[in-house]
Amino acid sequence: MGDPLTDERELKEAFDRYVVPEIEVLYRVARSITRNATDAEDLVQDTMLRAFRAIGRFDGRHPRAWLLTIMRNAQINRVRRKRPELMRDPDATMDRVASEDKDDASPEAQVLDRGYEAAIESALDALPAKFRTVVELVDVQALSYQEAADILGVPTGTIMSRLHRARTRIRKHLEQHGGYVNGRPA
């Protein structure tokens, strides 16, 4: 790794090169883990501020992974400020944050007359938070297993197993509550 950047112009260039192109992905990921538009925007601002302060020391390799790790730490700190009792298990913290605004309507009520997309939405909401977050990161936001592992701070094997279990549950939910067998109305 080379010497840290100190020149103001170089810092700005590094920020524009490594951080700015990732803003949209960061926001989408933040939406998935906070499930709230305002919190997501605040979280991305916090992440960008931290990235700006650290950009001089960044070696330029894997900027998305670097930013997702910063975002993960920023999110943990934000939750710690709000809910200090949750910090004993960071994984549980991410789950708790992700589940806070869950819709309480019954699955049957949610899918009534709303078709396959609605059934999917209902199946996603019915997942335990730790499964739902992985599905949102990989399937909705199109992150790789490694990128999802970076943001959640878990091994890629955990991402794979949660994803597999989550999709199996979604499929069963579609069959039981939406009447969809093999992706089609039964």
């Binding site: 810092l11 700005k12 920020f15 524009d16 951080v19 700015v20 803003i23 949209e24 960061l26 926001y27 989408r28 939406r31 538009a37 997501a40 925007e41 991305v44 601002q45 960008m48 501020l49 700006f52 396959y116 997309e117 999917i120 939405e121 996603l124 599905v135 399937d139 909705v140 199109a142 999709r167 979604i170 499929r171 579609l174 992706g183």
Partner: peptide, 28 residues
């Protein structure tokens, strides 16, 4: 299932991303 999930993007993303880009400019 995967395709249906991929179509499920949050609304009003563009406005938020524009504000965040502006925030980035204000930092630099």
């Amino acid at each position: 299932i995967k395709s249906s999930l991929a179509r499920r993007q949050p609304s009003a993303t563009d406005d938020a991303v524009a504000r965040l880009r502006e925030f980035g400019r204000s930092l630099t």
